[in-house]
């Protein structure tokens, strides 16, 4: 494995972005959507997730470790690119640039979000509807959360496209175009779910 470490890391990076991180994010957004049904419904769903058996092991294996690898290796990838949309303003080149920008924005957002909710929960705070309502009462934090959630969803949707091409699932130009449209639908649907949940707290 020594001489093709890069191959292994890049493929692992691509895989982890979809499974489990992408799946977890989708599930997280769906659970958040309970907020639209009211405070009790949301608290009940959040309680269920927070009290799953083996929750620390699940969190570590499904979220923290994959996320850490994806984030650190992703930063390395993002900063080895020399973007050139000025002279090459093609659609895919824009997506290439936005994928890197949204990745960094998402990393900042998630770091703050984990500190504000998960770390505080470990320190004894109650993660519930009330907490989110307090956070999102601040207009600056509301904008920060909207930008963060949208960039995470964009990064996932466009990353799904790269995953399909990177693993050789979508090879021909036509199939890559079909996947572009499919991931566009993923972006729109998840954005609606994510934004509805955010505005349920406001």
């Amino acid at each position: 494995m020594a001489d093709n470490r890069e191959f292994f890391y890049r493929r692992l990076h691509s895989l982890l972005g979809v499974i489990p991180i992408g799946l977890f994010m989708t599930q997280h957004l769906v659970v958040n959507h309970f907020a639209t049904k009211g405070e009790d419904e949301f608290n009940q769903a959040a309680d269920f997730m927070a009290n799953l058996p083996f929750v620390l092991i699940l969190e570590s294996l499904v979220i923290f470790l994959p996320l850490l690898f994806h984030a650190i290796y992703g930063l390395y990838i993002a900063f080895t690119a020399k973007n050139n949309i000025g002279t090459h303003g093609y659609f895919r080149n824009w997506m290439f640039m936005l994928q890197r920008v949204s990745g960094v924005v998402t990393l900042v957002f998630i770091a703050w979000h984990v500190w504000e909710t998960r770390v505080q929960a470990a320190l004894g705070a109650d993660v519930d509807f009330q907490m989110m309502e307090n956070i999102l009462n601040n207009p600056f934090m509301l904008v920060f959360y909207i930008v963060g959630v949208l960039s995470a969803i964009f990064h996932f949707s466009n990353g799904l496209w790269s995953f399909c091409v990177g693993w050789g699932i979508a090879v021909s130009p036509r199939s890559q175009q079909v996947v572009t449209y499919a991931t566009l639908i993923v972006f729109v649907v998840l954005s609606i779910i994510g934004l509805r949940a955010i505005f349920a707290f406001v």
Partner: peptide
């Protein structure tokens, strides 16, 4: 794996 699919 160096390819980032900018497709330029």
């Amino acid at each position: 794996e160096g390819c980032g699919n900018s497709q330029n």
